[in-house]
């Protein structure tokens, strides 16, 4: 329990760290939000006015703390590019990305677990190399290349969905889900291949361990041994992997959203970075951080339940 509390505290510390890094990043990269808003021909006077209006004329630290203060009082600020509260702007985008990521995650779990188990079981087969090669190939195909292919084949040719016409979620949920499904598949395929490979090698490795060999040679049922020991011991790396997957598919969604034209968080993040819309980027970065760290934390917590040896940092 204490461990869990520490992890949650760590989560908050990291989120603050990330928000500070993002703030600092904006200070370093070139570009000026006032100029982004006012355009090429703006005069210095106009720019000053705008900077004042946005509070950008204050020292960096002051800006950061006023943002942090706002954040803790539940105020994410006003977007520079849209003059709208950040919270209401990003909510619909978050929903879209979250749904896509969850679909993708579900696909990964549903396909990789059985495929991985089977691959491990059949690893002695003469045709194992075919399986392995197909798997490797799936990993080698870039996700956005896959996205282009899928939107052409399923969108333009087969017309399962209309690329470029993402239905609004609250109006046409099924249409939106169908659209997201194809994008989710593109994110999922390389990850499935990775998961299968990881599962296979973990399982095989576990099966070759002495205790398993001994157990089997003693006449215990192979399947029983597999279920009782091998699977349990393979669970830790699997859960770590799934935690990472959960975090990484959010990152992977950025490019896929671009190709499919899905109005999600990744696309919005990229656009907001290029528009120098600090409040939106700050909010998205913190949410992203929350998601990434949460996935890792949950995976660690589960792992620690399964295998208490992993109680890291407990000695400090």
């Amino acid at each position: 329990m204490k461990y869990a509390a520490r992890r949650i505290l760590a989560l908050f510390i990291t989120m603050i760290l990330v928000s500070f890094l993002a703030f600092a990043a904006f200070h370093i990269i070139s570009g000026d939000p006032a100029r982004a808003i006012l355009g090429m021909n703006a005069t210095e006077k106009q720019l000053e006015l705008m900077r004042h209006e946005l509070g950008l004329d204050k020292p960096f630290i002051v800006q950061y703390f006023s943002w942090l203060l706002g954040f803790f009082s539940g105020n994410l600020g006003i977007s520079y590019s849209y003059r709208q509260p950040v919270a209401s702007l990003i909510m619909p985008k978050l929903k879209v990305t979250l749904v896509m990521v969850l679909i993708s995650f579900a696909i990964i779990v549903v396909f990789s677990l059985p495929l991985g188990l089977r691959a491990a079981q059949k690893s002695e087969s003469r045709f194992d190399w075919i399986r392995t090669s197909i798997n490797q190939l799936c990993m080698a195909v870039p996700a956005f290349f896959l996205s282009i292919l899928v939107s052409y084949v399923f969108g333009i040719i087969l017309k399962f969905f209309t690329p470029g016409d993402f239905p609004k979620m609250d109006k046409n949920l099924m249409g939106a889900l169908r659209y997201l499904f194809f994008a989710a598949v593109c994110i999922a395929i390389p990850r499935i291949a990775m998961a299968v490979r990881m599962l296979k090698s973990t399982l095989i490795e576990e099966m070759e361990k002495d205790y398993v060999r001994t157990a089997i040679s003693r006449g215990n049922d192979r399947v029983e041994v597999l279920k009782k020991h091998v699977l349990k011991n393979s669970l830790v790396p699997t859960i770590t992997f799934l935690g990472q997957t959960m975090a990484e598919i959010v990152g992977g969604s950025i490019v896929v959203e671009q190709v499919f034209g899905i109005p999600g968080m990744g696309r919005f993040l990229v656009a907001s970075i290029s528009n120098r819309d600090y409040p939106v980027v700050e909010a998205l970065v913190v949410i992203l951080a929350f998601w990434v760290i949460l996935s890792g934390t949950v995976a660690d917590l589960i792992n620690q339940k399964i295998d208490p040896r992993l109680k890291l940092g407990g000695r400090a």
Binding site: M15, V18, A25, I29, A247, V281, W291, A316
Partner: peptide
């Protein structure tokens, strides 16, 4: 080693993981 080194480095590590790589690359 675990301990405090672990804590600090892993927090930084988490922050870096969670930081959008595009933004990092831009910086």
């Amino acid at each position: 080693f675990g301990g405090i080194v672990d804590e600090v480095l892993m927090r930084l590590n988490d922050a870096l993981t969670a930081f959008p790589s595009i933004l990092l690359a831009l910086v």
